[in-house]
Write a protein that binds this DNA or RNA. Structure first.
Lengths: 320, 320
DNA sequence: GTATGGTATGAAACGCGTTTCAGAGCAAGA
DNA sequence: TCTTGCTCTGAAACGCGTTTCATACCATAC
């Protein structure tokens, strides 16, 4: 393998000059530029990227932490980040945690080891103070509603959004509203819970514990929601659902069991993925491409901490 | 930042000894081991991973090329590879190409630059000879049916599978079978086309060009298939569909348009994703986790080229 | 008593590009 | 004429861990 010193020798210049040519630095005479380029071509020179990384202390790699990759929510987020990264000539290091804390720690350690320039955590399990303690090694960006002063975030205000959605359903005449979520813990879920309780209080509605369905992530979990629904005496008349995927499951199971949507149960979900369009599901659109782009921009910015709120948009279709 | 030399000095040993301790090499006396470990702890030593990469010429990073990340097919594949990678302490560099050749070339160049130890291409656009020419820089693995002698592959024999599926439909009484695919070019599509034509010949059936629906990737594309179907005089009685996603779109649109499944059109698809279970779609299961695992194993093996055929399994449900 | 082989340790070379610093040459402005 | 300020170039330092090679010691083996 030829290295920069070989090229320098071949072209009759110093390594500095070769480096300057490679990196398009000014102040190199034309004839030296062409001499260097000729030598590089002749010897099929390729710089050792790891030497560049060592020397610069940067890798142009951004770590992305997700619990799963096959879930549409995270898939879309990855897609958004990947597109932004590609435009800026960054590569992505994907770290799939399956919600294991050890894996998330590994990602943080990659930042510490300078294997990645920044870390985007799409869904965390680690405590805030753990994450904060790694901030000194590089930018860390979270996709979570928090006005932390060290860590940048891009987020959806789930309290606001949930309140808006609940009010919308209430205005449509629904006074018995249930909801489904994924993880019970987690900032998003807490915000939703708070918004829900505030809503009940505001309209003097009773809190029904069995109107809340936890651990619903995927289509199949939607089916199980309907199974529960069928067993209930006083069913909710409307359901605010984790995602379009879960909603699709609910909708399908409802049809099979003679439950009419929206007459027996109204369905409103999150994301606005293609399936919701096809099934005419009323949903709250989350602009993932924008979220990904923002997350990426924040990851590049080591100097200032910012918090970007992303607005969701109500898409009215036929399930409410 | 403390480096290995600082630690060596602090512990009163040579850098070699420190390196040996770090990497658990034998032949270091116990007292030196503990002296080194103490020094590392005291100064919060972390080795610079980029120096390791430079020195070793390996990065423990595997490149994964996908056209999109949010598509369930690729999401599942990524999931499978990511899980295998995590178990072997490898990291994934995700390269999303959007089917742009330039991006795929960039991935190949990452291999050349030693930024990644191996490359897994889930769906290619580059020509074989281009890919082959990069083989000398490291293992390249494809997810495509080809018995190339330089490049390892893990694949589904789509000719065989398609034939099997068509025969199954034929035996169920379907003599007018259409099919949908994603990209028109690409090995998989060619294999399916060949299998389809062979099937028609074998049973002396007429080739109907409008029974073939190209560029169907997602749920929404399934809806458009049904729109076409409704316009046709002699509809196919069965459809072999790209993926469960597309099938879900078709099924939904059929219901809306008074087309009964399977009586008016039978549907059979690929993947066996959760949605197919929920919607009772008869499908051909592709074991993505296994595919991902195999791909990863081949990526690690630079010495021998292998070809792993993955068997699909028919899951009979209610759409045929 | 000598040969053999494992244990323990360190100096030095190796992988390789970037960047700082110093200096030379030349032109425009004072 | 002297200063100021580009333009151009290269030596050397820097980032840092791994690995080869040489050496020394001690303990069996013959």
């Amino acid at each position: 393998m030829t290295n920069i010193r070989d090229i320098a020798k071949m072209a009759g210049v110093s390594v500095t000059t070769v480096s300057r040519v490679i990196n398009n630095h000014p102040y190199v005479s034309e004839d030296k530029v062409s001499a260097v380029k000729a030598a590089m071509k002749k010897f099929n020179y390729h710089r050792n990227i790891n030497a560049v990384h060592l020397s610069r202390g940067k890798t142009h790699l951004i770590g992305v932490v997700v619990p799963f990759s096959n879930h549409p929510y995270f898939g879309l987020l990855i897609e958004g980040i990947a597109n932004a990264a590609l435009n800026h000539n960054y590569k992505l290091a994907l770290i799939q945690t399956n919600y294991e804390e050890a894996k998330e720690m590994e990602a943080l350690r990659m930042l510490e080891d300078k294997q990645i320039d920044a870390l985007i955590i799409c869904s965390r399990i680690c405590e805030w103070d753990v994450i904060e303690s790694y901030r000194k090694y590089g930018p860390i960006v979270l996709c979570e509603d928090s006005r932390n002063d060290k860590i940048s975030t891009t987020f959806i205000d789930h309290y606001k959004t949930f309140t808006m959605a609940l009010d919308y359903l209430y205005k449509k005449g629904h006074h018995h509203i249930g909801y489904t979520i994924g993880r019970q813990t987690g900032t998003n879920s807490k915000q939703r819970d708070a918004a829900y309780k505030e809503f009940l209080t505001r309209y003097s509605l009773r809190y029904e514990p069995n109107y809340i369905f936890t651990s619903r992530f995927d289509v199949e979990d939607g089916v199980s929601v309907v199974e529960n629904l069928l067993d209930m005496k006083n069913r909710p008349t409307a359901l605010l659902v984790t995602s379009d995927q879960v909603a699709a499951g609910i909708l399908t199971a409802c049809r099979e069991n003679g439950l009419f949507v929206p007459d027996d149960v109204a369905i409103m979900s999150f994301d606005n993925q293609p399936i919701s369009k096809v099934m005419h599901i009323t949903t709250l659109e989350i602009p993932f491409v924008e979220v990904g782009k923002k997350l990426f921009q924040q990851a590049l910015n080591d100097h200032e901490v910012s918090h970007e709120e992303i607005q969701v948009r109500l898409i009215e279709r036929k399930t409410v």
